[in-house]
Design a protein around this nucleic acid. Structure first.
Lengths: 363, 363
DNA sequence: CAATGTCATGACACCGGTGTCATGTCAACT
DNA sequence: AGTTGACATGACACCGGTGTCATGACATTG
């Protein structure tokens, strides 16, 4: 690999002059500039950031850790890893800021985290981003001295700056939309009750009901724990059975996420319940691979992963540029839009057909 | 940030001795070792890889580019980006090899690629990985001199080493399974016909049919172009309509991917066709968020993304270690497993109910 | 014409590590 | 006792850039 000295020699100038041409930080005569450019070109010269950074003390690197970072309570989902979208949001911002991302995935082995951080520090990263796979509380393995840190999709007890989805507002807005369509009784299949998101969304759900003067019926809210595939369908089947056999059958069901809604589509139809004619269904996440492809397309609340990533990146960059900003702040909440598609429509009067179908079981 | 000189001063030794303690590459007395260790500890010293690498000429960095890398023919899908799994496969291998990944996402802007490569070269990456979002042919923007390169999920015309999914073998194995269940007439909804994968899988499909002595009926193979959501369902609806109104209605349908299968579930059921009682459905990809959650769970062929990533990483590491290996090789094909779940079962004799339902249209 | 200022460029040290070689100490061996 | 060699350590240069300061050539001004 050619060095600045090679270029200098070939162009018949000093290395420092080549440096000046490279950075344009001091006047260089036209003639010299072009001969230096020619030499760089001929040699395929690319300056070394390593050399540069030992002098400047700036690496231009940002470290990002994804994957299972020490979860506080042991709720684990083999989720759909949409954290990728967070990472993309981060990358987009970073690309425009001239920083380069160093990414490490723990692949669930949190004991690796200290090693990764060590590697990042050896690379002299200017900032650190933790990206969690779902909204949760974490405990940083080490207090990271000197390196600015931002948490995305997670938070801790020590006031580390963090960016979170506004799950409460999301479910609130979505439920409002369902109610606006005329539904008065709404079932709710939540994710595992231990999740942070579940608690917040349920709160939003209740608020929407209260706003509209509707009563919240605990019998219609059922938590579905989704650990892997085994028995998952049976759980959902049972939950739906309880809802469908209720004395006053709801006309709409909200689901903890799009994936759950997808399963609900199948089970409801398998029981002869038409969607959305007999039952409106709403999701959460707006995981577009699912929500757009489902038939009918799914009305759902966006989990603004991309925006969360972007926001976290901006926050971090701000903290790096002006460390004073790094004062302990409350988490930043990012809210997503309600995506109205075809699965939530006005309820039909004769939805009672539903009741006839109770009693079947999955094979 | 503390330097090796700070540590040396505090421990009362020369920097070189600290270096020896750090690397364990020369004998150091026990006493010295412990006092140096104490000093490093007290100062929170972490060696600088930048300084190290200018001397050693080894960065320990591998560059990875994801996203829309200059596609040759302009078929574009806003796909589900399962390329993430390829990246995970890569990371897993890299983590165990001591290299660190530098990742850049073009976010669809291929004009950025040259800039990214430039940045990577400034970081003196030892190898470069291109990861495409789906099996395709690409044209590298530049011949990358000096930096070993491997293509994952894509290939080019210049014999750059590449790792690809074995789409033909995958569809072959999957179709064999469908046939083994007793199906004799099988519909096939393929992805856009311009895709590499479509061609290969169709070939595997035909081979399986031929092996079993079944005739391939072109009327039952329909390409579904999936550009975004608009009109997509109508296309699928029409395609299914053609299949369901065929004189000899098939008992099973293979789909170009799991996402398509998901839409097919909805549309078939909406037309009153039970799954799998009246129609078996198979997917492709084994995108587990979909395939496991669908009801019934989807029988599908695995697109071994993780393995592709791992294989590509291994190949690259081998090329770096022993550049002689870098001779132009044929693409490496990685095949995936057939995941037998609940959506393909033995066909029922009285599947004729299907025919009655033609004629409805989507709203 | 001398004094002054601007422009273009180079010499040199330094950033934080490591390879090479030299030096000093002490135990073992003839 | 003198020689030899293993062991422990340090001095120094070098990797590839950049900041600082000095220098020389001209043009401008009084």
């Amino acid at each position: 690999m050619a060095t600045i000295y090679d270029v200098a020699k070939r162009a018949g100038v000093s290395p420092k002059t080549v440096s000046r041409v490279l950075n344009g930080d001091a006047p260089v005569s036209k003639k010299t500039r072009s001969s230096v450019a020619a030499a760089m070109d001929a040699l395929g010269y690319v300056p070394s950031l390593a050399a540069r950074s030992i002098k400047s003390q700036k690496s231009g690197l940002i470290g990002l850790i994804t994957g299972a970072i020490s979860t506080v309570n042991e709720v684990v989902t083999a989720g759909g890893l949409p954290e990728l979208f967070i990472v993309q949001g981060v990358q987009h911002v970073m690309a425009n800021s001239g920083k380069t991302l160093l990414i490490a995935d723990t692949a669930g082995q949190q004991e690796r985290v200290p090693t990764l951080i060590r590697t990042f520090r050896e690379h002299r990263v200017e900032g650190l981003l933790y990206v969690a796979d779902f909204h949760k509380k974490i405990a940083l393995p080490l207090p990271i001295d000197g390196v600015q840190t931002v948490l995305a999709n997670c938070y801790d007890d020590f006031g580390t700056p963090s960016v979170l989805p506004d799950d409460e507002a999301g479910q609130l807005a979505l439920t409002r939309e369902v109610i606006a369509q005329g539904h008065r009784r709404i079932g709710y299949l939540t994710l595992a009750s231990g999740h942070e998101a579940t608690r917040l969304r349920l709160s939003g759900f209740k608020t929407a009901l209260a706003e509209a003067g509707l009563v919240y019926d605990p019998d219609l809210t059922i938590a579905v724990d989704m650990f892997g595939t085994h028995g998952e369908h049976q759980l959902i089947w049972d939950a739906l059975d309880r809802i469908l056999t209720n004395d006053d059958v709801p006309t709409a069901i909200c689901c903890g996420n799009d994936r759950l809604a997808m399963a609900v589509y199948g089970i409801l139809r398998d029981r002869g319940v038409g969607i959305p004619e007999q039952m409106s269904v709403a999701g959460y996440d707006d995981h577009r691979t699912i929500s757009e492809a489902l038939f009918p397309a799914l009305t759902t609340a966006e989990l603004p992963y991309n925006a969360i990533g972007a926001r976290a990146a901006q926050l971090l960059l701000g903290m790096i540029e002006n460390p004073a900003t790094a004062s302990i702040t409350a988490p930043i909440h990012v809210s997503g839009r309600v995506q109205k598609r075809g699965s939530v429509t006005r309820p039909r009067r004769d939805a009672s057909v539903v009741i006839n179908l109770k009693g079947r079981t999955t094979s």
